[in-house]
């Protein structure tokens, strides 16, 4: 072996060794991503091109048939798929704009402009929906909104001599959005608050001395400086809302009536795991899930490109003075 070869080999060996630490640090997250994302996606992808369902499920899995894209053809011809698709877009857009971003921004702006302790108190209140177990949380809502004589609000209606309502069945979307929105506020609120509080004090004082009112300061200084956290929350919460369904499942289960508040991820669940008559269509449900994963990944890539998240990671914008 020539000396040069030896050297090169020693070099590559030491390069591998010097990277060992980095791989070691990445390993825990990497393993989690593989076990809980990549492998399930692979399984779902595989299931989506089979006819596996409880009706043909035997101990002999080999009888499961490969049926190509038949599930997807069925899906695109499904008379309700279109409605569910637009339901999903409506649900995500309305919840995102009014609550996950809109109200989150308002709450963080208000709580950073009042006494520090009071601000902390109100933010803590807004975190409650997030840390309450979804089942308990939905039960609270259901008890409040229930028909007379059970519902709390209807009890007040009765006391005041007003007519009573079955709120959830007359305005299901209002409640689906409210229930999810109240949970969604806390995420954006935390991100926005920390971004606002990391704006240097001098900069905020300078704006007041320069002649701005508090509202003008929000418009000309604070909002431009938290642009990146804003984009991040929009992105992250779009993806998060696209895949969230447990609150809707517990509140309306997609009803009332046929698919009135059914969203895409809930359909995947219904088809695959909770069909009427106990007929679980694992393969068909997987087809819904696959489309959702596809949409999610495409959106994520677009967001990353458009908003240049690599730059966001490279240097914190707010601190760049």
């Amino acid at each position: 072996m020539s000396q040069r070869q030896e050297k090169r080999e020693a070099h590559s060996r030491s390069a591998w060794r010097s990277h060992l630490g980095a791989y070691g640090f990445m390993a825990p997250a990497g393993i989690l991503v593989i076990i809980f994302f990549l492998i399930p996606v692979a399984i779902v992808l595989y299931l989506s091109v089979t006819n596996l369902a409880s009706s043909n499920f035997t101990s002999d899995l080999a009888r499961m048939e490969f049926i190509g894209l038949k599930n997807f053809r069925t899906l695109f011809n499904d008379q309700f798929a279109r409605k569910i698709f637009f339901n999903t877009i409506f649900y995500v857009l309305v919840t995102l704009s009014f609550f996950n971003v809109g109200l989150a921004l308002i709450v963080s702006l208000l709580t950073t402009h009042i006494d520090r302790n009071a601000g902390f108190f109100f933010r803590a209140l807004w975190i409650l929906p997030r840390i309450t177990s979804p089942v308990v949380y939905i039960l609270i809502w259901k008890r409040m909104m229930a028909e007379a004589p059970f519902g709390i609000i209807n009890q007040f209606n009765e006391i005041l001599g007003q007519p009573t309502f079955n709120y959830v069945s007359t305005n299901p979307w209002v409640f689906v959005v409210l229930v999810n929105g109240f949970i969604g506020v806390s995420f954006g609120m935390i991100i926005f608050t920390s971004a606002i509080e990391s704006i240097p004090r001098d900069l905020l004082n300078a704006s007041l001395v320069d002649g701005s009112s508090k509202l003008q300061r929000i418009r000309y200084v604070i909002l431009p400086l938290i642009r990146w956290p804003l984009l991040f929350v929009v992105t992250y919460q779009t993806l998060s809302l696209l895949t969230s369904f447990e609150e809707i499942l517990l509140l309306t289960d997609g009803g009332p009536g046929l698919y009135r508040t059914e969203v895409w991820s809930l359909t995947a669940f219904h088809r695959a795991l909770s069909n009427y008559f106990g007929n679980a269509q694992w393969g068909y449900g997987s087809a819904f899930a696959v489309l959702l994963v596809f949409i999610g990944v495409v959106l994520a890539v677009i967001y990353m490109r458009v908003f240049r998240f690599d730059e966001l990671v490279a240097e914190p914008r707010v601190e760049a003075l």
Binding site: N205, S207, L208, G211, S212, L321
Partner: peptide, 20 residues
């Protein structure tokens, strides 16, 4: 009186220029 109504100019140690 609010800062904006005092007609003062101020210079800060950190310069406090608006980065955007």
């Amino acid at each position: 009186v609010q800062p904006k109504d005092r007609n003062i100019g101020m210079v800060f140690q950190s310069y406090a220029l608006y980065p955007h």
